[in-house]
């Protein structure tokens, strides 16, 4: 020990934990990998198979499954079933959407649809077709048969049948109007058993059900009516702007209205409106729909059309 070093300050000696801390980095790396694997294995959504009549417009490993506009899954592959009757589309649902893999869940494809009566899914022209669903509540399952088209929203309603000679421009979901207000829609149609009539299955929503009486009169309000008169000249009339495009059915109830129509009632659908029906103006009390329920059930239905 020299004298010189005695005059110098002394460096402090302290324990170093760095060497041990450094090994926390590989440990953290392992932790991250474990986290990824756990996320993939435990938080793994179900893989489901949906059978489509035609998967035209869906893209392998690309088309999403959406619910209320949010992506909840993605298509992985598609192949023809052995009997060549269906296309089996396999898709992976997100973990958050695992509850949708239940019996009763209905899947269908959303594609651009521009036909008389409705313009739907325009976004899909740009974004490509996608699959959407209506959740069911049955026991879990992984196999589904897709619907050919979007199902009609189930609502409490009075369902009845309209008899007509020719379907004309009517389609599923054609609106039914009362004084220009949409109160119901066509659900389905078919030829009668003797093929002499068209049977149109339709419904009036519950809150408007009292308007429909056994002696109510229905007429076809679709399209534009031309009336040519010597004195009045040409007269063009239409029920509403919507019916010009989409067709429609209107009805009126006479002032001496009968009993309220019940499920399964049958009405004749007339080609034209009778002038007398226009004058009918009965006061019919509607069901008192609670305000909250109105907001929940009736407004969204209007929006979704």
């Amino acid at each position: 020990m020299s004298e010189k070093s005695h005059a110098l300050p002394k460096a402090k000696i302290a324990r170093s934990y760095l060497t041990w801390f450094i090994w926390l980095i590989p440990v953290a790396a392992v932790g991250l990998c474990v986290f990824f694997v756990v996320r993939d294995v435990i938080f793994k959504g179900p893989t489901i198979t949906i059978y489509f009549q035609s998967a035209d417009g869906l893209e392998q490993e690309n088309s999403p499954i959406k619910y209320r506009g949010a992506n909840i899954g993605q298509i992985h592959g598609m192949k023809l079933t052995p009997d060549k009757q269906f296309v089996a589309v396999t898709a992976k649902l997100d973990y958050t959407a695992r509850e949708f893999a239940r019996q009763g869940t209905e899947f269908w494809m959303v594609q651009p649809e521009v036909k008389v009566g409705s313009i739907k899914g325009l976004r899909t022209i740009v974004s490509g077709n996608y699959i959407t669903l209506e959740p069911g509540h049955g026991p879990p399952t992984n196999e589904f048969v897709a619907l050919a088209e979007a199902p009609v929203e189930p609502v409490k309603a009075v369902e009845f049948t309209l008899l007509m000679d020719d379907l004309g421009s009517l389609q599923k979901q054609t609106a039914i109007f009362y004084r220009g207000v949409q109160v119901g829609e066509v659900l389905d149609f078919r030829l009668s058993d003797d093929s002499k009539h068209v049977l149109v299955h339709a419904r009036i929503r519950e809150e408007y059900a009292p308007l429909l009486r056994v002696n109510s009169k229905f007429w076809n309000a679709g399209g534009i009516n031309f009336h040519f008169g010597l004195l009045s000249g040409a007269e063009i009339s239409a029920e509403s702007a919507q019916t010009v495009v989409s067709g429609g059915i209107a009805f009126a109830t006479p002032p001496d209205y009968g009993d309220a129509a019940t499920n399964g009632a049958v009405f004749q659908l007339n080609d034209k409106e009778d002038d007398e029906w226009k004058k009918w103006n009965p006061a019919i009390p509607l069901h008192g729909v609670p305000e909250a329920q109105k907001e929940k059930s009736s407004l969204p239905q209007v929006n979704s059309k």
């Binding site: 110098l8 300050p9 002394k10 402090k12 302290a14 324990r15 170093s16």
Partner: peptide, 16 residues
């Protein structure tokens, strides 16, 4: 400039 003693294992020297 300072004197540094022998640094035992698991320790470091720190400037005075």
């Amino acid at each position: 400039v300072q004197g540094v003693d022998d640094v035992p294992e698991g320790c470091v020297a720190k400037c005075a």
